[in-house]
Design a protein around this nucleic acid. Structure first.
Length: 574
DNA sequence: GCTTAGACTTGTCGGTAAAGGG
DNA sequence: CCCTTTACCGACAAGTCTAAGC
């Protein structure tokens, strides 16, 4: 319980895979120190606004109208988005127009009173063309990345994740966001706080400007921050996932999840017994935890107003579930239908224990549809409780734990030694997919899905025809060889056999590809791969089954998981 | 205790570079 | 070799969770 800096333990893990009971209490060196020295060049600002050429004209009520620089820039934000469906939304238009008018001069405001009378089409066309010519400025870009993309943390040169200040534009948000279309203002150096170490070279603000503040706080990991004007939330410049700082944190996250594995049986027994508690609060806690564990629901914090209406477990409302005593031949079914993070729909019909079902019925009694299902608890209470069961345990650890466990189990079930590498990769993707489904990681079906599916179909058909042809030719060659054996005819048979075999392999590969594609239509694998699956499971599996790690992790992923690739041997168990 | 601020992780999307097929 | 398709990567929004403040 007294390990503070965990970094020195990383090398030990190279030699032994051990669950380090007691280490989960994350880099909480009692003072919360995250680094000793930090030096960087500050954030990179977006380019200044470039005024429109005179031949690109904005019209109001059909008349040319010359906008001032400030309002012209905002007009270009809207003009650039004209292709998007959301510019047709009433909320978007209203928010944009309000904010735009606020930035106008008195004279502009007198004229421009209705968005419907604004004609941005020339501006729109201008930017469509401009996008074409914007191609190769790679050399300057590279130099900027070199200059601003790296920092020194405790003497190591580390990649920065997002070193650019976010450019101004119109806020979109996800789902039905009440603030969509609002103006996201340009950030000035005067808005930015710089964080670096005391003796380090302080980055120079742009010519004629000053930083809002320069501080030396080594209890946080960010290099620069500002407050965005839409929700008033802070934004940070932080390190890339490949950095040591982020890597160690990631490792700790998975160690906590592994630690849950050791305790989960007793925790499950506990929340099951809570279903019969005489206290309503405990019952709600027990059922909520059950959902979080079984269905991998998110915790569900309370949200601010002025955001999209989305929920997680604790914020579920009565209207989000329907109880079916019997459904599709199953007893005690709960039907979930709600919008979760990023307004992604969660829809699921789940048979539950009778006791859970009865409890839910109780929780819903005498409530309106928009009342909270779990009215006696919230995430703070839940997490406080979890922390008493196990140090470091919070609601989201269940997601990590269940995701990683599922991957490992599925890999064990589906991988067979006689598989080709391609088949093993498909097996991996399927295991990955099982996790993505559990975590409800969805994506919109790719726009070109049907088309590319058809294309594959045709390819398979062609390949089959080729195989038929090859078979016939092989037969002929064999006959010829039987009738008049010679070296030449023998070689021909061998050659034809080889061709057929190759074609059959190609066909198999295509069919695998198709299966994979179909099953992946609306499932996003990336999020779970990056955030929920202990990379050591994957590394061990690759080693054990002789699958090159490059087939599973691309370059970015290999960089992020360098610690795991480094330390894991094939015996690792989550 | 409860609320709010702050810091950090998780999430989807869209543009662009790179790969692949005709 | 060119064009299309796919994979990758950055952008930035939206969550979780802790702790500061009252």
């Amino acid at each position: 319980f007294f390990f503070c800096d965990l970094s020195h333990l990383l090398p030990i893990l190279k030699y032994k895979s051990v669950v380090y009971v007691g280490l989960w209490e994350e880099g909480k060196s009692s003072d919360g120190q995250k680094w000793t020295t930090l030096e960087h060049n500050g954030p990179l600002f977006p380019p200044e606004y470039e005024p429109l050429p005179n031949n690109v004209v904005f019209y109001y009520s059909g008349e040319a109208f010359k906008l001032g620089l400030a309002s012209e820039e905002i007009a270009t934000f809207y003009a650039k988005m004209l292709d998007h469906e959301y510019t047709t939304k009433e909320v978007f238009q209203k928010n944009f127009f309000n904010d735009w008018r606020e930035e106008m001069t008195e004279d502009e405001r007198k004229v421009i009173k209705k968005l419907s009378k604004c004609n941005f089409s020339e501006l729109h066309a201008y930017f469509v063309n401009k996008a074409e010519e914007k191609k190769n400025m790679t050399k300057e870009e590279k130099q900027l990345t070199e200059q601003y993309g790296f920092c020194f943390l405790d003497g190591h040169r580390e990649k920065i994740g997002n070193f650019r200040v976010e450019p101004p534009g119109l806020f979109r948000g996800r789902g039905e966001h009440p603030k969509m279309g609002k103006l996201k203002k340009r950030i000035q150096p005067e808005d930015i706080t710089i964080n670096c170490s005391k003796g380090s070279r302080i980055p120079g603000p742009p010519q004629g400007h000053k930083w809002r503040k320069v501080q030396h706080d080594n209890t946080v990991t960010w290099l620069a921050s500002w407050v965005e004007n839409i929700q008033g939330h802070p934004k940070y410049i932080m390190l890339n996932p490949s950095s040591k700082l982020k890597g160690e944190k990631d490792w700790q996250k998975y160690e906590t999840a592994r630690n849950l594995k050791l305790r989960v049986d007793s925790i499950r027994r506990q929340y099951q017994s809570d279903w019969s508690s005489h206290e309503m609060r405990n019952r709600q806690r027990g059922v909520a935890l059950y959902f979080i564990d079984k269905l991998a629901l998110r915790a569900g914090n309370e949200k601010e107003d002025d955001t999209a209406d989305t929920v997680g477990c604790c914020s579920l409302r009565v209207e989000h579930i329907t109880l079916h005593k019997e459904l599709d031949g199953k007893e005690w079914v709960v039907e979930f239908d709600f919008l979760g993070k990023d307004s992604i729909r969660y829809y699921n019909k789940v048979p539950v224990e009778k006791r859970v079902f009865k409890n839910l019925k109780l929780f819903m009694e005498n409530k309106d549809p928009d009342d909270d299902l779990f009215d006696r608890i919230n995430t703070t209470y839940l997490n406080k409780n979890l922390n008493e069961s196990m140090a470091g345990l919070t609601a989201k650890v269940f997601r990590t734990f269940n995701a990683s466990t599922t991957l490992q189990d599925q890999l064990n079930i589906m991988t067979k030694e006689d598989m080709t590498v391609e088949e093993k990769i498909l097996a991996y993707n399927r295991a990955n997919r099982a996790v993505a489904i559990l975590c409800n990681h969805q994506r919109a079906a790719p726009k070109t899905f049907e088309k590319s599916m058809q294309l594959l179909q045709e390819k398979i058909k062609k390949k089959k025809e080729q195989i038929e042809l090859a078979k016939r030719e092989l037969k002929e060659a064999k006959n010829a060889h039987r009738e008049r054996p010679s070296d030449k005819s023998k070689n021909l048979v061998a050659k034809k056999e080889k061709v057929l075999k190759r074609l059959q392999e190609q066909l198999k590969k295509l069919q695998l590809q198709m299966t994979d594609k179909e099953e992946n239509k609306v499932i996003a694998l990336g999020t779970s791969k990056l955030n929920y699956l202990d990379p050591r499971i994957t590394v061990a599996w690759c080693k054990k089954h002789k699958v090159p790690i490059e087939k599973i992790y691309n370059k970015t992923q290999r960089d992020k998981f360098a610690w795991a690739i480094d330390m894991t041997d094939e015996d690792f168990e989550f």
